[in-house]
Protein backbone atom coordinates (compact mmCIF):
# COMPACT_ATOMS: atom_id res chain seq x y z
CA UNK A 1 0.00 0.00 0.00
CA UNK A 2 1.40 3.40 -1.00
CA UNK A 3 1.16 6.70 0.80
CA UNK A 4 -2.20 7.33 -0.86
CA UNK A 5 -4.71 4.60 -0.28
CA UNK A 6 -7.05 3.77 -3.16
CA UNK A 7 -8.69 0.53 -1.99
CA UNK A 8 -11.20 0.81 0.86
CA UNK A 9 -13.53 -1.45 2.79
CA UNK A 10 -16.80 0.27 3.82
CA UNK A 11 -15.77 0.35 7.50
CA UNK A 12 -12.37 1.83 6.73
CA UNK A 13 -13.86 4.46 4.41
CA UNK A 14 -16.22 5.63 7.15
CA UNK A 15 -13.24 6.69 9.29
CA UNK A 16 -11.62 10.10 8.84
CA UNK A 17 -8.12 9.39 7.54
CA UNK A 18 -4.97 10.92 6.10
CA UNK A 19 -6.66 11.12 2.68
CA UNK A 20 -9.33 13.43 4.11
CA UNK A 21 -6.68 15.63 5.71
CA UNK A 22 -4.83 15.86 2.40
CA UNK A 23 -8.09 16.87 0.69
CA UNK A 24 -8.60 19.58 3.32
CA UNK A 25 -5.14 20.96 2.58
CA UNK A 26 -5.21 20.67 -1.21
CA UNK A 27 -8.75 21.96 -1.73
CA UNK A 28 -8.33 25.58 -0.52
CA UNK A 29 -4.91 25.68 -2.16
CA UNK A 30 -6.52 24.69 -5.43
CA UNK A 31 -9.17 27.41 -5.09
CA UNK A 32 -6.57 30.10 -4.35
CA UNK A 33 -4.33 29.06 -7.26
CA UNK A 34 -7.18 28.81 -9.77
CA UNK A 35 -8.68 32.11 -8.68
CA UNK A 36 -5.52 34.24 -8.61
CA UNK A 37 -3.98 32.36 -11.54
CA UNK A 38 -7.01 33.08 -13.76
CA UNK A 39 -6.99 36.79 -12.98
CA UNK A 40 -3.26 37.21 -13.64
CA UNK A 41 -3.35 35.06 -16.79
CA UNK A 42 -5.94 37.34 -18.39
CA UNK A 43 -3.27 40.07 -18.24
CA UNK A 44 -0.67 37.65 -19.67
CA UNK A 45 1.41 37.84 -16.50
CA UNK A 46 3.71 34.75 -16.45
CA UNK A 47 3.20 34.08 -12.72
CA UNK A 48 -0.52 33.73 -13.52
CA UNK A 49 0.07 30.90 -15.98
CA UNK A 50 2.33 29.13 -13.48
CA UNK A 51 -0.32 29.44 -10.75
CA UNK A 52 -3.06 28.27 -13.09
CA UNK A 53 -1.02 25.22 -14.08
CA UNK A 54 -0.22 24.45 -10.44
CA UNK A 55 -3.92 24.88 -9.64
CA UNK A 56 -4.83 22.30 -12.28
CA UNK A 57 -2.22 19.85 -10.92
CA UNK A 58 -3.41 20.34 -7.32
CA UNK A 59 -7.03 19.87 -8.41
CA UNK A 60 -6.15 16.63 -10.19
CA UNK A 61 -4.29 15.38 -7.11
CA UNK A 62 -7.19 16.31 -4.86
CA UNK A 63 -9.66 14.19 -6.79
CA UNK A 64 -7.16 11.39 -7.35
CA UNK A 65 -6.78 11.09 -3.58
CA UNK A 66 -10.37 11.50 -2.40
CA UNK A 67 -12.47 9.98 -5.17
CA UNK A 68 -11.96 6.25 -4.37
CA UNK A 69 -12.90 6.85 -0.75
CA UNK A 70 -15.99 8.90 -1.61
CA UNK A 71 -17.17 6.20 -4.01
CA UNK A 72 -17.04 3.54 -1.30
CA UNK A 73 -18.72 5.79 1.30
CA UNK A 74 -21.49 6.63 -1.16
CA UNK A 75 -22.27 3.10 -2.30
CA UNK A 76 -22.27 1.78 1.26
CA UNK A 77 -24.42 4.62 2.56
CA UNK A 78 -27.02 4.16 -0.19
CA UNK A 79 -27.85 0.75 1.29
CA UNK A 80 -28.82 2.33 4.63
CA UNK A 81 -30.47 5.48 3.31
CA UNK A 82 -34.03 4.10 3.14
CA UNK A 83 -33.97 3.13 6.80
CA UNK A 84 -32.57 6.54 7.81
CA UNK A 85 -35.21 8.37 5.75
CA UNK A 86 -37.97 6.47 7.51
CA UNK A 87 -36.56 7.50 10.88
CA UNK A 88 -36.33 11.13 9.73
CA UNK A 89 -40.05 11.08 8.87
CA UNK A 90 -40.90 9.52 12.24
CA UNK A 91 -39.03 12.31 14.05
CA UNK A 92 -40.76 15.05 12.04
CA UNK A 93 -44.16 13.43 12.71
CA UNK A 94 -43.38 13.11 16.44
CA UNK A 95 -43.46 9.32 16.29
CA UNK A 96 -39.87 9.08 17.59
CA UNK A 97 -37.83 11.33 19.88
Amino acid sequence: MGFIRRQWSPEEADEWTREDVLAWILSPLSYALLSVGSALSIFLIPAGFVMLLLGAVVTFLLFYIIDPKLKVISSEYEKKQKEYLERLERITRWEEE
Binding site: S30, L34, S35, K71, E78
Partner: peptide, 21 residues
Protein backbone atom coordinates in the same frame (compact mmCIF):
# COMPACT_ATOMS: atom_id res chain seq x y z
CA UNK B 1 -25.11 10.38 -3.34
CA UNK B 2 -22.61 11.63 -0.76
CA UNK B 3 -20.00 11.86 -3.54
CA UNK B 4 -22.34 13.89 -5.78
CA UNK B 5 -23.06 16.23 -2.87
CA UNK B 6 -19.35 16.85 -2.27
CA UNK B 7 -18.58 17.47 -5.93
CA UNK B 8 -21.57 19.76 -6.44
CA UNK B 9 -20.41 22.08 -3.68
CA UNK B 10 -16.76 21.99 -4.75
CA UNK B 11 -17.27 22.62 -8.45
CA UNK B 12 -20.06 25.17 -7.99
CA UNK B 13 -17.80 27.25 -5.76
CA UNK B 14 -14.79 26.79 -8.06
CA UNK B 15 -16.87 28.39 -10.82
CA UNK B 16 -17.83 31.24 -8.47
CA UNK B 17 -14.17 32.00 -7.75
CA UNK B 18 -13.09 31.79 -11.39
CA UNK B 19 -16.01 34.04 -12.32
CA UNK B 20 -14.73 36.58 -9.80
CA UNK B 21 -11.36 36.59 -11.57
Amino acid sequence: TVRDASYSIWWGTALVLIRNS
